[in-house]
Nucleic acid binder design. Sequence first.
RNA 1: GUGGGUGUAGCUCAGUUGGCAGAGCACCUGGUUGUGGCCCAGGUGGCCGUGGGUUCAAGUCCCAUCACUCACCCCA
Length: 423
Amino acid sequence: MIQLIRGFKDILPPESALWQHIERTAIGVFENFGFREIRLPILEQTALFARSIGEDTDIVEKEMYTFPDRKGDLVTLRPEATAGVVRSYIQHKLHAEDPVRKFYTIGPMFRRERPQKGRYRQFYQINAEVFGIASPLMDAQLIYMLMKLFQKLRVKDIAAHINSLGCPACRPEFKSALRVFLSDKTGSLCSDCQKRWMNNPLRVLDCKVPACREALTGAPMLSGHLCPDCRSHFNAVKTWLDELKIGYLVDDRLVRGLDYYTRTTFEIQTGALGAQSAVAGGGRYDGLVKALGGPDIPAVGFAIGFDRLAAILEQEETGHSRRTDVYLAALGEDCRDLAFGWVCTLAGMGILVEMDFESRSLKSQMKRADRSGAAYVLILGENEMKQGLAVLRNLATRIQEEIPLDRLVDTLEQKIKKKQSTD
RNA sequence: GUGGGUGUAGCUCAGUUGGCAGAGCACCUGGUUGUGGCCCAGGUGGCCGUGGGUUCAAGUCCCAUCACUCACCCCA
């Protein structure tokens, strides 16, 4: 038997109904905030990710699906969405008409990590990206939008964590301060952190190895080294979150593994996913558009872990599948043929209708109707046919009535539409 | 990449010191000439993850391998 690839996943009904619900809710919320959908390819040139995410990150170093295509060009299955959105923004000169653009996009990402709870090699993200707005108001609004979405989806047990990573004016100074602080402690750091000490000492900050945490006691903190502009930007974000009544935690160690972030970073964390705490994460990346060859335009965005969000909500309940409106139970071939025509007509009118194609017993068809959650069963047998009638049974109340065949479609439509509006 | 746990029916899982492959749920049929849920009876369904080894005999013991899963790392 051929099985799906390790770390990949099928999304089957009824889970797919929950996915549609999440997707529709997110689209509704984002559109209200002025975001428009952008759809991008899954495959990009490898250089795009190497340059945006950073050569020294785990993602680029060991997690990407990279291979030469048939011509020999190096291509990569996208490990995240932002790089592609930025590429598209620059390539189509979207800044020319109006640098302010707000996009969302939904789709699969690929990272070759060891799979575990809440982590797959193909996973899905809902991304939102804003270009051309440097104001901290936008940082706060993005977090607000995120929390609003989670609130609409009734996600419980979540907390917003925020931090500021500074900018090219203040971060290098902090980096060297941190490097100096750690210089006589490098021996006690884990092997990863010894490399980070040279390449990117910020990453030592969110290492979870106890020895590294201990080495950090009394270490300089980013918050103490922000330049005046970054400081006031971060303060404004916090003030506006307060105004918007969004609770948050300032987390000095929230560094994140992508190199392009500047200033505000944030993560929405949950306790419901085992070791995976982040359901969404994002931040500002003011230098990325320019770094990828575009004009100097600020940007900020986030990504929601779709799989993780779905996993949290699945624990609640999945009543998002549509129930059958009416099940046509036909007895004998003549009746079945008649029913078949009506089923096609009714489905075309927007009624969820089912029938049995195997000419089973009435009892069996009733059972199937019941299992499908049908509101009504329409029974069509020889006796009724002779009289030009069909029997309509309400499965909940067990009340039956006779309906003339020549007014069948109208009557059913009327009854079902009425029932739908009272539900 | 590293470590732990688990692989037996569609699903959840029993399976004794090695001795005929099991239960519940689900599914199908009947009990009711043409009426669902509850109940009762019967039935379908298995390369016991895969390959090798030990043995008269392996679901059970040994080795290998694969998959799933949880955790480390990192992230969504």
